[in-house]
């Protein structure tokens, strides 16, 4: 999701023209993290013109908002960032939980500790971060150990995400630890694990999907959404490794500084509709907290256990939490990983 080509503001101008304009709505979202059709439909239905700006990490978004960026109405923080932003008083109470359609939302996704009742934000989507691999080259891959063994065994190249916490999480999970551990010893062990694998890693990058489809790499650490590129190529598979994987969940939040709070609320209500949430899933390959929407998603998504995650696989997933001052441990570990030769 992190793309250097961020800041590409995509403006969905109203086809109907200004006569129908009912004001505007400004979204600030991760790159490629919403189906453009959802926005088009919203505009058709409400007459509200939508602009979309993108960011590539929670921290980037937070830094911009903290530095005083104004004009954005809605942001899509991950759960732990949702908590931080609530603590910092950056979000607006919407009372979205009072809406009749809110019954569609699976209560298991009300994860934000600071907003247990969803008085502020609406669970948007969730997904997993696992391994994509070209089975023709690599043979079967089930675990992180399999993944890191690919270069030596087959000569194929592998890449990891260029993300501090995602990469160190692999080390933590390989050692059976929590991805939110604040124990220096755990983080050190995770660092050592990653360092022992670094020679096998070709790059830390977000550009792995194109490289995987062109055959330049054999496997990559990536978001489940990458499946969108491989619907026609059965040899490229997605797996949630046996040691575990991280999951992410983003919520739709309205900024306290939003200029169009009413329109923002209309968007949240619009997104409560099962057919809209399903429309997003069909293009994003994400999970949705909207229960009836799950029945409306395409079959190839519904039937893939690595995408439509069930029971025992679900148990292997961990979600990032805000770790406060312990972030410094990870920062140092990440510097060590990246400078090691």
């Amino acid at each position: 999701m992190k793309m250097h080509s961020a800041c590409v503001a995509v403006a969905f101008s109203l086809v109907a023209g200004s006569a129908l304009a009912e004001g505007t709505l400004s979204l600030y979202n991760w790159g490629d993290y919403i189906n453009p059709e959802v926005l088009t439909k919203f505009t058709e239905e409400t007459g509200i013109a939508v602009t979309l700006d993108t960011y590539s990490s929670n921290e980037e978004m937070l830094a911009k908002i903290q530095a005083g960026a104004t004009g954005y109405d809605i942001v899509f923080p991950s759960v732990h960032m949702n908590d931080i932003m609530l603590k910092l008083g950056l979000l607006e109470k919407t009372g979205i939980n009072q809406h009749p359609d809110f019954k569609n939302i699976d209560p298991a996704f009300l994860r934000a500790k600071e907003d247990p009742e969803s008085e502020y934000c609406l669970p948007y989507a969730w997904g997993t971060v696992g391994v994509f691999y070209n089975e023709t080259v690599t043979g079967p891959v089930a675990s992180w150990e399999d993944f890191f063994a690919i270069p030596e065994k087959t000569g194929g190249k592998i890449t990891l995400l260029d993300d501090m916490r995602e990469v160190l999480a692999i080390g933590l999970m390989a050692n059976g630890k929590s991805v939110n551990s604040a124990e220096p010893a755990d983080v050190q062990a995770a660092t050592d694990y990653i360092l022992s694998k670094k020679a096998a890693v070709s790059a830390f990058t977000y550009e792995s999907m194109a490289m995987l489809s062109s055959g330049d790499i054999a496997a990559a650490h990536f978001f489940v959404g990458g499946n969108v590129f491989f619907t026609e190529t059965p040899n490229v598979k997605y797996v949630i490794p046996t040691e575990g994987a991280t999951m992410y969940q983003e919520n739709i939040c309205v900024l306290a500084s939003a200029p169009n709070k009413e329109n923002a609320k209309k968007f949240m209500e619009f997104y409560l509709k099962p057919e809209i949430a399903a429309l997003n899933v069909a293009q994003q390959f994400n999970g949705t907290p909207n229960v009836p929407a799950n029945d409306l998603t395409p079959d190839f998504i519904k039937s893939n256990p690595n995408i439509n995650v069930q029971g025992d696989t679900m148990a292997r997933l961990q979600i990032f939490e805000d770790i406060g001052a312990a972030l410094k441990l990870y920062d140092r570990a990440w510097n060590t990983v990246r400078t090691a030769q």
């Binding site: 830094a63 830390f204 410094k328």
Partner: peptide
């Protein structure tokens, strides 16, 4: 940006370090 895109982010540059402080380490 160049070390990130063409170097595969494997060697850390001082610019990466600064970027990292603002965009992931929150320092």
């Amino acid at each position: 940006i160049v070390p990130d895109v063409l170097g595969g982010a494997k060697g850390l540059m001082i610019g990466n370090l600064v970027e990292q402080q603002f965009l992931s380490a929150r320092n």
